[in-house]
């Protein structure tokens, strides 16, 4: 396991996701910054949490800088960052 991994860019309509492992029992520490936070903040957080759950991640620091990405992009960036952390991608 790496100490840190990332995926995505800061281009418009993309999202840049950084992940960092946390000790067992720490839970998910999620920070979301978004240009559309007022309109989609809750939806972005929900998508990220669901993606982490589907990857069976329980303890992780996640920082997301969103530039207006749609759901499938958010899922793909989160999954890629997590897999890079595990050196699978």
């Amino acid at each position: 396991m790496k100490e840190k991994a990332w995926a995505g860019t800061m281009e418009s309509s993309d999202i840049y996701v950084e992940v960092e492992p946390l000790a067992t029992g720490s839970g998910i520490d999620l920070t979301v910054n978004s240009v559309v936070y007022a309109q989609f903040g809750d939806a972005i957080e929900k998508t990220i949490m669901e993606t982490l759950e589907s990857l069976a991640i329980d303890d992780m620091k996640v920082v997301a800088n969103d530039r207006g990405a749609v759901d499938c992009t958010i899922k793909a960036r989160v999954e890629t960052a997590v897999r890079r952390l595990k050196e699978e991608a």
């Binding site: 418009s12 309509s13 240009v35 559309v36 309109q39 989609f40 530039r67 207006g68 990405a69 749609v70």
Partner: peptide, 10 residues
Amino acid sequence: IVAPLSRARL
């Protein structure tokens, strides 16, 4: 009016 269907999810 010319514009993309959405800009940065909006």
